[in-house]
Design a protein around this nucleic acid. Structure first.
Lengths: 337, 337
DNA sequence: AGCTTCTGAGCAGATGTACAA
DNA sequence: GTTGTACATCTGCTCAGAAGC
């Protein structure tokens, strides 16, 4: 209250103790909700805390408890809807569990920047790391690297040593192709994600395998980069070669494909069926509304945090959530021949 | 290396010192890049650090330096494209500046949850807080609350005491309406954001003021909630009342509006002009491609972090980045009458 | 004996000083 | 004079163990 303003950076547990007329230890007990404090004393301490606007130093506490109450989140793929949903959900789940989240987002998923991001987290003494891995290189960067803390990977591929949660992309892609097959299509093309994308490759594999099982010969997949713009380019190529059904690896590219197809005078779904992947909120309002495979990002994000908590508790032998089933959302962009 | 596995949680600066044959003080010098260390010694120490996989304790360092090297980010509005972009950019800028970011995301922007989110950050001893404020209640929750750390607000409204960065939503909305006016439209409707949204209200105000300045009487604005679904509903109403031009407060709702208009048999832009706001990546591939106002989320996110660093350095009297100008992106959804 | 409260020893580093090579 | 070292002290808090009522 001096003219100097608040020097509040300096209120310690001892100041509170003095004001409340108790020892710092008693204040600590109140702070940590420990028993054996007389209600009247507790009240006096709480009063002092409020009056002093005292905030315990997390640093000091972490130093002695060896627990930072913080987890790290490494996310690539933002600002897209899927990754953003994961970030949101992991964050909220963590907060519910009393953990703070240090997030490091990366525009490029190259190995070196990933490792340095993870090192930053380790330096901040996070208790666990959640990796949202869109690219295979991300997985590789962590492979065989002893972090010293538990690692949970959100990824569409079951491979790898780390604990993993996520949707089984392979099965989901098969379901999408099956839908097209059931509608009577036999010439089913694929607009795939970029080379190196885990989900992209798994969806491609699912498409190819499912076709071959039906005795069909898959064409060469077209490679996009997840953006509507790339979908548009590829869609133009598709229109030229007269495709009748297309499985597009994500909804954003599907939007571009629809755009290109219509620009080329091909009607969807009358002339060509299009199915997407993700079920972003926009998908229901494309022209026509997009048939797609839904990923429940919220549920998967929760799974990730649940896995973290499990690892943090019993170290080993935790039962992990099973990969999620992918619901097919049938709208207006696919039609029986 | 014992059967017990790694007890690496316990490698201290002293262990490194012992292995390198120097004092812990010298190790500290190496760690902090201080002078007066012979190159050979430095090398020996670095070697020992690598060998021991030593990671300095952030907690211990923060305790004594009183600097957590961490900033807090409070974000509402995820997983939408705009907020997600901010999160991404603020994160990267912070990392470049050597700061870790503790992010708290909130699905609902209610005052109490915002305050408790901020308190969590304060308890983690962040050095500053960045608030991505979509709703007015978010701003109110922080108003007149002495946080004890600098606060930077990303918001579309210049009001308030805190340091603010962002696009001038009011002016941007006026620009959108001006475009419609120049095309010869006189009946210009508005699909607005939800009540309480800062950006929404500012865009609404810009639309209303601009019309009145041209001697036109604004109709009642329709209220959406930013989602394509709400745009669709409102678009249906618009089609019934025979609108000829619509300024939609964001691109996602504009998508829904396009969908509804076309469902009702109204052609865009032949029968009705539609202009959106944001320029999300999808906008260029709507049917028709959407005319819209671009927000440069990346630039604004950088501004936010720049403001944080400025505040952290000279406490007071910092020159702040000027509000950004909004470029108009003219595509195929608007047309002269 | 039983609550309640207090005292003192770390936790892992940073910083400053005195001092040796 | 330049490097480097040893020692002491400090950060704010938790946790045993001890003491008081």
């Amino acid at each position: 209250m001096s003219t100097n303003g608040d020097r509040s950076r300096g209120t310690t547990i001892f100041d509170v103790a003095r004001l409340a007329g108790v020892s710092h230890q008693t204040v600590s007990r109140v702070l940590n909700d420990l028993p054996n404090v007389r209600p009247a004393t507790r009240e006096r301490v709480e009063q002092a805390i409020r009056q002093l606007r005292y905030v315990p130093s997390q640093a000091a506490r972490a130093l002695v408890t060896r627990r930072s109450r913080t987890i790290g989140l490494v996310a690539t793929g933002l600002p897209d809807y899927g990754p953003a949903s994961y970030v949101l959900t992991v964050n909220e789940s963590a907060r519910d569990a009393g953990y703070a989240v240090i997030t490091t987002t990366l525009a490029d998923a190259a190995g070196p920047s990933l490792r340095s991001a993870a090192e930053l987290l380790i330096r901040q003494n996070v208790e666990a790391i959640v990796l949202i891995a869109a690219e295979r290189v991300a997985l590789d960067a962590f492979d065989g690297w002893e972090l010293g803390v538990p690692l949970v990977v959100v990824s569409g591929e079951p491979r790898g040593r780390a604990v993993r949660v996520g949707l089984d992309q392979y099965r989901a892609a098969r379901a999408a192709v099956s839908h097209l097959l059931e509608l009577g299509h036999t010439d089913i093309r694929h607009v795939a994600g970029p080379v190196g994308s885990i989900d992209g490759e798994e969806r491609l594999r699912g498409w190819r395998d499912r076709l071959q099982e039906s005795g069909l010969t898959p064409t060469e997949a077209l490679r996009g980069d997840w953006t509507p713009a790339s979908g548009y380019e590829l869609g133009a190529a598709l229109a030229e070669t007269g495709a009748e059904a297309v499985f597009v690896a994500n909804d954003q590219m599907a939007l571009g494909v629809l755009h290109a197809l219509q620009t080329a005078g091909r009607r969807v779904p009358e002339d060509v069926s299009v199915i997407g992947f993700d079920d972003i909120p926009e998908a229901a309002h494309f022209s026509p509304p997009l048939t797609t495979v839904r990923q429940d990002f919220v549920a998967i994000g929760r799974d990730a945090m649940a896995a973290v908590l499990a690892l943090l508790q019993d170290e080993e032998g935790t039962r992990l959530p099973a990969p999620r089933e992918p619901p097919l959302i049938i709208r207006g962009s696919t039609r029986a021949v």
